[in-house]
Design a protein around this nucleic acid. Structure first.
Lengths: 337, 337
DNA sequence: CTGAAAGCGCTAACAA
DNA sequence: TTGTTAGCGCTTTCAG
């Protein structure tokens, strides 16, 4: 346990009675090494507590397997309960692909210092557009997660928000609902737009009328949805079902309904989005949309890996969601009990 | 936007009409550089999209500011809603201290590959003991977060669990409660032990009797607490207040109470721990303990930074908590309404 | 204020 | 199967 100065490969070589090359070979699992030498090298490494200098290794070998993972410091849409899933996804993939992950928690304003990284993984690009532009400009391989960037020549892996909401509307329609309203997310985010678009498409596909007041513009937060829901539900021509673009807003709808004396799901069906903890813990367990957070992350890292290996064409993908049925929806033709 | 081969410092030097040394000086903000040269170098860098090779820089300069952040893949006690806070803390500190964070999401079994890292930050050591032992053995500077390791000669920054629960019991006592029970967390975790210890101490300090059935052994989960709460509350000599070692378990207590016809807080006061989203969204908004997740993380990184700079003595700290009053507790002398 | 030259610790031909 | 010998791209004395 003494404060040992750094051990270098030469010392290991000397201790094992071989050349540094052989030590290097052992280190890199080159098969053509005598079993005896290998054992002596390994022994010396252990005894001396030798740890190769990664920077020297990388410099000499000319490789750089480091990826910067950029996470916005003030995660808005990017709910904290999704972060662990995301980390699990990239973490697992990184291990498998032998990639190092450099963590960057950024406020989006400071310029990105991705010195050591050969590529960048953006976890939610909202507010980080400049950094993305810069990286693209520099020719650094990038992949954006959870956001589908139609125009930009950049790879991205997103959730099929449109399809998800279409499923939701289809589900409600099957339960007999025709008066279906929605509370949207931020319409400055592609996610918000896609979810609204999915709603409109699904309604039109079923010849269901989208009355003007059926589309309320929220921003994902409970606070934003509260008054909107109140207003929506207070009307005579109130909907029988509401699709919210987030679980938080869905909860707000349930609260508003409750205050107006409406029961969920007897008098009103509500669907959320996210499958957040709130969804299962809310007074009325929420029917909502589960997203493949972990898969998006893993897939993204794979694409980035391919980009690093020379692939040039950006790849854009969407992954499917799953409707999680709980207890906030109900068939219209049942007697309220 | 052509596929440009890597630009090296020599090319920048040539383009700017200076030596590589001068370019290096500009890169490293060495003040003794002619303003004209500096500008031309900067211009060349921009024009050529030059990005210095970090590995070469580090090798030549002999420094390594990389820290491995080790996060268990299957976070148990380490609830996902705390992860973002933790990341914020270490991320911010890393930026300030000019440290690179290498992310390692591990299952604890595979050996840690911290090649590039000069130090290690463990986020919750449960299940990673072997990795910690190994690192200590290697003489790699380590800091453990959220866990107070009494015996091991390793730095750690934890939450003052004992004090937190003492505060909780004090709070309940002030509300007039004398029959106070607790549902503990895993007693194989130091956190679980400390919270229980805090409860026992606080009770004894107030001459309050700790009846045998007042201490129920849970494991932080809702499922574990459910039957315990049921049993505890079904007795004739049931407590008037319950301190749970997690919000999940506190919610279980409320559910159990509800099933037994007991109202919270009228007939039973309940306190949780964590200040999780569940706490505020639960049917009865939960009075609970907020923890300085972000501060612990930031502080830990600072200590590690000091260790890297030569400090030898391990540092052990505890940070204070805050009781968040919501609506799950009540004075005993009020009429139930 | 600037440049020449000597490494940083390791890997990878190339020979042996 | 092994060792010799050049570098990898940058920083840093040291002399100008």
């Amino acid at each position: 346990m003494t404060a040992s100065r750094t051990v270098r490969i030469a010392e290991v070589a000397r201790a094992a009675g071989v050349s540094t090359t052989t030590v290097s070979r052992v280190l890199n699992n080159v098969p053509t090494v005598d079993e005896g030498s290998r054992r002596r090298v390994l022994a010396a490494i252990t005894r001396l507590h030798y740890r190769p200098n990664t920077n020297a290794q990388r410099l000499a070998a000319g490789r750089n397997n480091t990826i910067a993972l950029v996470i916005p410091r003030f995660a808005d849409m990017f709910r904290s309960f999704h972060v662990m899933e995301m980390l699990k996804g990239v973490g697992t993939a990184a291990e498998r692909l032998h990639l190092d992950l450099l963590l960057h928690v950024t406020d989006g304003r400071s310029l990105l210092n991705v010195g050591a990284a050969a590529g960048i993984l953006f976890a939610d690009i909202d507010g980080n557009e400049e950094q993305l532009d810069w990286a693209l400009q520099q020719g650094i391989p990038c992949v954006v997660m959870y956001q589908f960037l139609e125009e930009l020549p950049v790879s991205c892996v997103a959730v099929d928000n449109r399809g998800a909401v279409e499923d939701v509307v289809g589900y409600l329609a099957k339960l007999g609902h025709r008066e279906i309203a929605t509370i949207t997310g931020h319409l400055r985010t592609s996610i918000g737009i896609e979810r609204l678009d999915g709603y409109v498409r699904a309604m039109q596909a079923r010849q269901l009328e989208v009355k003007p007041h059926y589309v309320q513009h929220g921003d994902y937060t409970r606070a934003s949805a509260r008054p909107l829901a109140k207003e929506l539900l207070a009307r005579d021509d109130r909907p029988t079902a509401v699709v919210a673009a987030s679980d938080d807003m869905a909860v707000a709808v349930i609260e508003a309904a409750s205050e107006l004396g409406l029961r969920v799901p007897e008098d009103l069906s509500v669907v959320g989005f996210d499958d957040s903890p709130i969804a299962s813990f809310s007074k009325v367990p929420l029917t909502t949309v589960w997203q493949p957070m972990s898969d998006v992350a893993g897939r993204s890292l794979e694409i980035l890996h391919r980009l690093l290996s020379g692939a040039k064409r950006p790849v854009k993908q969407r992954l499917g969601t799953r409707l999680v049925e709980r207890q906030s929806c109900r068939q219209t033709w049942l007697d309220p009990s």
